[in-house]
Amino acid sequence: MTYLSPLGYLLGLEGAALLQALREGTGDRAFVEARITEIRTLLADPALAASPGVEATPGGISTAEVYREWAPVYDEPNSMIEYEEPFVHAILDRLPIGDALDAACGTGRHAAHLAERGHRVVGVDASPEMLAIAERKAPGATFHRAELTSMPLPDRSLDLAVCALALCHLPDLVPVFAEFARVLRPGGHLVISDPHVALSYLRPTLARAPGPDGRPSIFTEYHRPLSEFLAAALPAGFQVRHCAELPRTNPPASALAGVPRVIPAPDVPQVSWELIDWIPEAAKAAFHVPTIVIWHFQLGGERSDSMPGG
């Protein structure tokens, strides 16, 4: 069981803000005393005291359920996509035109970009709701409903694959990288983005009520150190061309300015983004961590279309 407490989450962010300031040398006396005062205020707040939290079961929400809900709103303003997309496109735009895969394509945002660049595009995703949107967004592409570990694509049929913000949903990277190595031609490029492990310690927990057991349930994600990507990619024959850890330069609270303070309802137990507006200065300091990791790999072998590093 995981105990979801709005007060506990806010106190955790205050502690993270203090530790970040100590590490970076930015925590002067005024900042530290402001955090201590804010912690005392949070502990005395009657609204937080009246919301003691709930126990939730990890792993009771499937990826399919979550993306069924997200599909209609996925293309709305999304800070993760806003950070990730320019960096991924900068890599993709330097690669030769060829046969390209958008793996776990979602609503087809990268598929559409690749098609506009002149690639022959195929997309793969397990969510029919997301694929329906992708087909409208990139009508010239071919889409398949399938898992990343078993894609209905011929061996050595692709020059390029991109997989964006999706590997965090898979428990094991090894079979995924093996599948990428199977479908790419020698010298083919693989561009991956994923939520950074550092962010996972700070962002709210996605929960729903009830889960299969009647209790509130938490969506499971797999946040990995960078070494796990290398442990899966290198034995599959991939070489690292570039790796970037993108920092979060703006706090999530910036998008919530003026929003009334909200405590998640007990029947929908969510330690939610709205809570961050309670402590914007602490949130800004705490969230000064890498948000997304970007990888550019190249499959070993013949490299007739090689390029300068990432």
Rank of each mutant, 00 (worst) to 15 (best):
D267E: 15
G8W: 11
P46D: 06
Y9W: 12
G211N: 06
R40S: 11
E228S: 10
V289N: 01
L22Q: 13
D28R: 13
L131N: 02
A253M: 03
M1Y: 00
V262N: 10
A233Y: 02
W70F: 15
H288N: 14
R145P: 08
S227E: 14
G108D: 08
G310M: 12
V122L: 10
L42A: 05
V268I: 08
R68I: 00
R35T: 07
D75F: 08
G258Y: 03
I292F: 00
G25E: 06
S200W: 09
A56W: 02
F297E: 07
E82I: 01
L153F: 01
S79P: 04
D305C: 02
V162S: 12
G8M: 04
G53C: 03
P308K: 00
I81C: 01
T37D: 15
A161P: 13
S5D: 07
D28K: 13
A21S: 09
E65D: 12
L170P: 09
I133P: 12
L148I: 08
I218A: 00
A132G: 11
R109P: 00
P212D: 09
A47N: 01
L48E: 04
V197T: 11
A231Y: 00
P72F: 12
E14G: 10
Q298F: 00
E221M: 09
H89R: 15
E76S: 05
A49D: 07
A146S: 14
I294D: 02
L19K: 11
P72C: 08
E228I: 05
G310V: 09
D194P: 05
V271E: 13
F229K: 00
P212S: 02
P128Q: 04
Q20E: 14
E245L: 01
L95D: 06
I97K: 08
P252C: 07
P251H: 02
R241M: 11
S5Y: 04
A103D: 03
D75A: 11
C163R: 02
C105S: 08
D159L: 06
L160Y: 03
A17Q: 08
R203L: 06
L148K: 00
P154F: 02
A146G: 04
T149N: 11
E24L: 15
G300N: 03
P96K: 01
V174L: 09
H189P: 01
R261M: 10
R68L: 04
P269F: 09
S150C: 15
S272E: 03
T57K: 03
A134D: 10
G27D: 06
V197E: 13
I279C: 07
E274F: 12
S217Q: 01
F287L: 04
Y74D: 04
P235C: 02
R40W: 00
E84M: 11
V54D: 01
T41S: 15
T149Q: 09
E84C: 07
A103C: 08
V122I: 13
P225N: 06
V176F: 02
E33L: 15
P216S: 06
I192D: 01
A138S: 07
V122G: 01
V162D: 05
V197S: 06
L19M: 13
T149G: 13
D305S: 08
E82A: 15
H223W: 05
M130W: 07
E84Q: 13
S227C: 02
P308T: 03
F87M: 14
E274H: 14
E85Q: 10
L10F: 05
I91P: 03
L165D: 07
T220H: 09
S51G: 11
D213L: 01
V240E: 12
A161E: 06
S200E: 13
Q239V: 14
